[in-house]
């Protein structure tokens, strides 16, 4: 069984959606087609191509925003909500820098349309801890210097923290597997391994859960 249950929003599904919304002319024809379908079969009402009102549940807070349906979750978080801790690096699902949790499942925000998230709860790097109350994984990253330039770090933290949520006692190989999609160009991996394993060890010693109160929705 795979250690990582990626969300059901697959790249293929995304590309299908993107293909239908890539250019405005195509969007208009898709719109027309959808409208026809709805008229004929009472399908769901089409959204867009212009901005539509939408509620995004992020870090336990509902945000009423207005976004174009083609907007990715990463764009909505960064451009609309100003949550810039989520980084965009490859913008096509190759590097995991944009990893957030959707209902606690690590998800690539650059490959997810914001409106596809619906009412589900999003947790970002800003939501799992802050300077006053670091998540244990964040604290261990600082202690072990599991970061250099820091651009991959939020995604790494989200992947490692999610691993510990679903597997409290990971092996080194489990950690490698959990971040096998997270690219780091500075080469922080060895210390990411050490930090994550130490959190698991510490928790075992203290017999307390990893989750912090900050991740309300986590």
């Amino acid at each position: 069984m795979s250690d990582i249950e990626k969300r059901a929003i697959t790249r293929r599904g995304f590309l299908k959606a993107a293909g239908a919304t890539a250019a405005s002319t195509v969007v208009e024809s898709a719109h027309a087609i959808t409208k026809d379908l709805r008229d004929s079969a009472n399908g769901p009402a089409p959204l867009g191509p212009g901005a539509v009102p939408f509620v995004l549940h992020v870090n336990g807070v509902p945000h009423s925003i207005s976004i174009e349906p083609r907007m990715t979750l990463a764009e909505a978080l960064r451009d609309t909500l100003g949550l810039t801790g989520t980084k965009v690096v490859c913008d096509r699902g190759s590097c995991s820098a944009c990893t957030v949790w959707v209902d606690k499942v690590p998800t690539l925000a650059c490959m997810t349309l914001a409106i596809d998230v619906g009412m589900r709860n999003i947790t970002t790097i800003e939501g799992i801890g802050n300077a006053d109350h670091l998540h244990p994984v964040q604290a261990a990253f600082v202690k072990h210097d599991a970061l250099q330039c820091g651009f991959c770090t939020p995604g790494m933290v989200m992947s490692c923290a999610a691993l510990l949520e679903r597997n409290p006692n990971p092996s080194l190989d489990d950690v490698k597997h959990a971040i096998s999609g997270n690219l780091c160009r500075c080469g922080t991996y060895p210390k990411v391994f050490a930090a994550t394993l130490e959190v698991a060890q510490d928790r075992k010693a203290l017999s307390r859960p990893v989750s912090t109160s900050n991740g309300k929705d986590a």
Partner: peptide, 15 residues
Amino acid sequence: PRYDGVAKVTGAGKY
């Protein structure tokens, strides 16, 4: 430990 480690692990550092 890194001076700006906390800012980087919390996503607070502005690139």
